[in-house]
Every structure is written in structure tokens, then in C-alpha cells.
């Protein structure tokens, strides 16, 4: 079973983390997670490229999950996102 801590650790070892939210969306069985990552590493990259970066970084973990969902923002986009969400 994959833990939130393991995912967070893997993400921290691959990215400059500005903000990170890992949520267990499996109601406890540990097979579905959603990740929200804000990182300057995403600057100048398309959504597809960003998702590929995360997929690569979490390759081993994702292989053990049933479902995986992700959101990726640059710090600048994240500030705008927070304003919209108000």
C-alpha cells in the first residue's frame, strides 16, 4: 500500500516544491490519490509535459495504485488560482 508520506517524499525528491497537497481519495484503501503540486519546475511547460514529469517521478507508486489524479501549477498560476477561488 502506498502512503501519503511516501508520495510526498518522492515528490520532494524530484521537484522544487512551493506548495503540495496529497489527498487519499480511496476512502482509506490507499489505492487512489490526488496530487496538487505548485512548483517553479513547471514554468514554461505545457500541462501534458508537467503531468509526464510527475508520472515519471511517481512511476513506481502509480503502478501500485488504482487511480491517480493530478493538478499542476507554477507559483504564479497558483497565486491567480487562489484569487479566483477567493
Amino acid at each position: 500500500m502506498i502512503s501519503i508520506q511516501r508520495l510526498e517524499k518522492a515528490i520532494h525528491s524530484h521537484f522544487v516544491v512551493d506548495h503540495l497537497e496529497v489527498k487519499d481519495i480511496s476512502s482509506g484503501c490507499g489505492e487512489s490519490y490526488s496530487v496538487l503540486l505548485v512548483s517553479e519546475d513547471f514554468e514554461g511547460k505545457s500541462t501534458l509535459q508537467r503531468h509526464r514529469l510527475i508520472n515519471d517521478a511517481l512511476k513506481d507508486e502509480i503502478a501500485h495504485m488504482h487511480a491517480f489524479s493530478q493538478k499542476t501549477y507554477t507559483p504564479k498560476q497558483w497565486e491567480e488560482q487562489k484569487k479566483v477561488a477567493g
Binding site: 500541462t47 501534458l48 503502478a63 487511480a67 489524479s69
Partner: peptide, 25 residues
């Protein structure tokens, strides 16, 4: 696709992404 999850969407033979990307687009 070098993509770990299903669903996967292609448009005109080009990989677009999975559910998250399709939804945000």
C-alpha cells in the same frame, strides 16, 4: 503513450492526455 493511467485520448493521432488534462482543457 508513456502514460500510466486509463482513460487516454488521442486527437488526429496525437496524444492529448488523460482525464485530468481533458477536463482542464
Amino acid at each position: 503513450s508513456e502514460w500510466p493511467t486509463i482513460p487516454q485520448i488521442y486527437v488526429n493521432g496525437e496524444f492529448v492526455g488523460g482525464c485530468d488534462i481533458l477536463l482542464s482543457m
